[in-house]
């Protein structure tokens, strides 16, 4: 019971990084991989059916925070007020760009929203890096350690951009029509080594960055970070053998790890900010039903649209 809610929160956050990481990466790569309208629509259709089902993982994180950790929600949101506001606005702009870009035939309209999607996806990745980097030094407010939190945040911002872009490229290699997938594979192959190297360095840096929990959390944080770097490093090898499922699994693990690291650092402080047992028991009653139902729904969505995009695939975004 004590562990159930923190684990659920961590899993949802990590799951969000995995699935919206596909979309953030694809958004970043839209203009790079998509020369013409056909290529761009193919990229958008690769993420399309999952897009709404992906971002709601973050909605679920917000829901669990509100229900089970109301005070944590305040610390996180209020303590990093402007950063969170900026993150929300970027999220909104990214979504609007996806919804709006194909709603008018005008090439200028589409090019404008494509630029907006690429830019906002990039800034959104930066936002997640800043948040992870700051949270690795402990929960907000950051008053007495803003300098070290700021430097760590800047490092992780670069890491997350590279990580999500690689992750997105691998996903597109697995989803794009066969003739377009080669470019995504090349991009993933080119990016994975620098991304993995930087992720490893950022993980090692946590040895000197003071964080809550001391050595008991530092060791797993560094080890998991290095493991994620190794997974990222080896993804191109799987792509080269056309083992797309394995490649996606490898970068998915890497994309999940930063969220897990932040959760590990924060877990120790969660007991003070958890809701009353009576509240948790009501929520748990619903959760017993909801978790399997929501998991089944997600599985249904991924199964229904599992096939590679081709000329006859239904488009919308």
């Amino acid at each position: 019971m004590d562990l159930l809610w923190p684990i659920l929160l961590g899993l949802l956050f990590a799951g969000y990084f995995v699935v919206d990481g596909f979309d953030i990466g694809a958004g970043l790569l839209l203009r790079r991989l998509g020369g013409g309208e056909y290529e761009r629509r193919a990229v958008l259709t690769s993420i399309g059916p999952f897009f709404l089902g992906n971002e709601v993982w973050l909605v679920a994180v917000g829901g669990v925070l509100a229900g089970a950790f109301p005070l944590m929600k305040d610390h996180l949101l209020g303590g990093l007020y402007l950063l969170i506001v900026a993150g929300l606005l970027i999220w909104v702009v990214r979504d609007a760009a996806i919804w709006f870009r194909s709603r008018r035939p005008s090439p200028r309209w589409r090019a404008g929203w494509d630029a907006m999607l690429g830019g906002s996806s990039g800034v959104f990745a930066v936002f997640w890096g800043l948040l992870v980097g700051a949270l690795l030094t402990g929960p907000p407010p950051l008053t007495d350690r803003w300098l070290v939190a700021g430097i760590n945040a800047a490092v992780w911002a670069v890491v997350m951009v590279l990580l999500f872009t690689t992750h997105g490229a691998v996903f597109l290699a697995a989803r794009l029509p066969a003739d377009l997938a080669a470019r995504a594979t090349a991009t993933a192959t080119r990016l994975s080594r620098p991304a993995a190297g930087l992720l490893a360095l950022a993980a090692l840096a946590q040895l000197v960055v003071p964080g809550p929990g001391g050595i008991a959390t530092t060791v797993p944080v560094v080890l998991l970070g290095l493991l994620a770097a190794a997974a990222l490093w080896s993804a191109p090898a799987a792509l080269a053998k056309s083992r797309y499922g394995s490649a996606v699994a490898l970068t998915s693990f890497a994309a999940a790890v930063p969220a897990v690291l932040a959760s590990l650092r924060l877990a120790g402080g969660l007991t003070d900010v958890t809701a009353d047992p009576a509240t948790l028991s009501v929520l748990s009653g619903f959760l017993v039903v909801l978790v399997p139902v929501l998991a089944a729904m997600q599985a249904w969505m991924w199964w229904t649209f599992r096939r590679r995009v081709h000329a006859g695939t239904v488009v919308f975004f």
Binding site: W57, V64, G67, A278, L294
Partner: peptide, 24 residues
Amino acid sequence: NVFGVPLALETLIAFVAEATFLGM
């Protein structure tokens, strides 16, 4: 402890499911 319950249930019962089904 009280107000968070309906908010959490709204996201998990409704919001998440609605968006997923609409995408499909």
